[in-house]
Design a protein around this nucleic acid. Structure first.
Lengths: 392, 392
DNA sequence: TACTTCATTGCAAACCTTTGCAGCACGACG
DNA sequence: CGTCGTGCTGCAAAGGTTTGCAATGAAGTA
């Protein structure tokens, strides 16, 4: 892993020459305030002057110093985006959507990864606080109370976590888990495992709650396995445990774990979906590329990113922080309205789920053990999953 | 995709009360400069005073304003990281390595995605310029001359692109492509396709050059297909073309394309590796999870991230930008030394490559068409790939 | 002509912090 | 007793920008 080759050259390249508003003012023969206005309030300056100033600025390669500007206006036109794990393919679509939405409003997005570490999360919020106008906290791992406390330092929008009093963007994983369970029960599974994710994940708690209720309602038994790391290795690590537990179907915390689990089961000689059905959550691109293709609960990540940015900017605009005028601020408790948005999820049925032990044969097929590979849920099996498809 | 549910509440949460160095000074009965020193030069302040100040600061929840600090010191302790496409799993390991390395040196990393768009790249550099101490440009898509120009605005380190006069971190994809071609020729392939990536990619040019030379030297024929988008769809889109071209092996620009290609070939009924062998580049985690597992050229992404950060910080430290003292700077041409580091790559042989039409049978197997699925390159076939394994 | 209105520009304070320099007190040394 | 060094602290300028206010001059109105 050492580097093969290092070449070193020395050159006399000119260093960065910071050109300021003063230089432009001097060059164009006006006061610095006029230059400033040329950029931030063009309608206040004589068209002739303006073009002259602009020409000089162009000439000198002047660029307004955003940090200095932020110091006085209190707005940086930056948004912070804190992510538990960039390596999780769930996030990139969210990031991209947020970035494009922000760009439309003349904002830039800075992404930071926390490695699923709550401490890093907190530190990052502090570091970002004064350099951005607001922070999007995605799938945070820290406590609600800490989040509330941090929200006093910088405007926050939380994604994938419900915290009262703060704007939140949620995905209805409860509904998703319910559909998944009902789908599995409809296929004839009665003994199902839930592969838990990180302990401190709101999504994890929601899924657990909803899946438990749905299983109970449908007369199926739900075993909870976890918590686990929300990654491929987290999934493959529990393969043995899944086999021993004797369940015929598994709902995983996310696609990555589902894929890892399938891989792990494969290594143990357990075939999916013939012997065990697996459902994931997220519908990452990858879930369409593995064999078998993954049945999964699709989450609207792009919409989440866009919505979160909108909510942040809206909240941000109505309360210009760092106001001028001496230290008032505490006096008038700012009245702020916080919305919580819940986005729909959808079950996408592909090839990783198949008939279970209690399936009623859909057509004259060999064994109740299920049809050949790549056979999606047959049309003969209702997915209403209210329990009546089970009978016995 | 609409949101199911929106709840809105209004609360009287106190707004962000920005507490400055002044408040702390007032509270602890010292001058602001003493407070400042308490944080940035603790050894200069009386221990008693220090604890008192720290207590007050803690009490009031004071946090130094990094923007204001940067304005005067000229250092933000931030690093910008510009990436062509976060959705490409090649980058996350690089990002994480860079972040961890930066954190060790008390720096923060801000990541930004450009969507493979050169214009966005340039804009992002400008936006970041005054908010970071330097920028890591990863797999840039803009021209060398523009990069050089931008490097006068902010210290730059370039990854996956060679530009003279600037510090660069390169991966030896030339060597990688050579090994891949030799591996394929050794397996008995004589007609090979190279799936090109983005036109403006340095890696792309390097691979093309090296693969061409290696094929010529080994007496094989190389067909170049492309340029293409460096994604799964970019790969699957050329499946038809690959089949028509009649090659028996393909070297793809990266793993994503290789995986997409395999998927596309599968849809056309072409089996990998039995009918066509496929080699990728990058060794992303995903390449171990697809079937067949991907043979690929592993690139040291983590090392690249760490090295890039080191080089940036080193370059940065010796020349403190935004120096105090009036507008000198042009006068003394700053002498700066730029290193270019080349990192090794390694061919990882898995299941997507198998014997070609000119293979000599390794053991008494059925047809020269190749063994069953999941059979990696048999131990009987040497991978020295100097060409002598071909014979006839 | 005198007065108002308007557009344009300059002035200077403010944002929050760092830092060179000077001042102060105190102990030590000659 | 005078001088010096040392340890600590305060003063004020500086960094690049925005912005309320005032000043200027010209045009419009009565």
């Amino acid at each position: 892993m050492g580097h093969t080759h290092v070449t070193t050259t020395t050159s006399d390249e000119g260093a960065a020459v910071p050109v300021t508003i003063r230089d432009v003012a001097r060059a164009s023969g006006v006061h610095i305030s006029t230059v400033s206005r040329t950029f931030s309030a063009p309608h206040l300056v004589n068209p002739e002057t303006r073009v002259r100033v602009l020409a000089c600025a162009e000439d000198l390669g002047y660029r307004p110093n955003r940090a200095a500007r932020a110091l006085i206006t209190g707005r940086t036109h930056n948004i912070g985006l804190i992510i538990a794990d960039i390596a999780n393919p769930f996030f990139p679509p969210l990031i991209k959507a947020a970035e494009s939405q922000a760009r439309h409003r003349d904002y830039h997005v800075f992404v930071a990864d926390t490695n699923e570490d709550p401490t890093a999360e907190e530190e990052l919020v502090h570091a970002l606080a004064k350099q951005v106008d607001g922070v999007l906290l995605c799938s945070p791992r820290m406590s609600n109370s800490l989040i509330e406390q941090l929200s006093r330092e910088v405007p926050l929008v939380v994604v994938n976590r419900q915290v009262t009093g703060l704007p939140c963007v949620l995905m209805d994983v409860g509904q998703g888990a319910r559909s998944a369970i009902e789908h599995l029960v409809g296929l004839g599974h009665r003994s199902i495992a839930l592969l838990g994710g990180p302990r401190s994940s709101w999504t994890n708690r929601e899924m657990r709650r909803a899946a438990g209720a749905a299983a109970r309602a449908a007369g199926a038994e739900l075993t909870v396995l976890g918590p686990n790391a929300p990654t491929e290795v987290g999934g493959s690590a529990v393969a043995e445990q899944v086999r021993r537990s004797g369940v015929s179907a598994v709902l995983a915390y996310n696609d990555l774990m589902a894929i890892g689990l399938i891989e792990g089961l494969d290594a143990l000689g357990v075939r999916v979906p013939q012997e065990v059905s697996v459902v994931g959550v997220d519908d990452i691109t990858l879930s369409r590329l593995t064999r078998p293709k993954l049945t999964t609960v699709a989450t609207p990540t792009g919409a989440a990113g866009r919505t979160a940015v909108d909510m942040l900017l809206q909240q941000d605009i109505e309360s210009p922080r760092g106001a001028r005028g001496s230290g008032a601020g505490t006096a008038l408790g700012v009245r702020r309205t916080t919305a919580q948005v819940m986005l729909q999820t959808d079950l996408v049925i592909r090839d990783s789920t198949g008939p279970g032990p209690y399936a009623r044969p859909a057509r004259p097929l060999a064994a109740p053990r299920g049809p050949g590979p790549h056979c999606p849920a047959g049309p003969g099996i209702p997915t209403t999953a209210t329990g009546d498809a089970v009978a016995s």
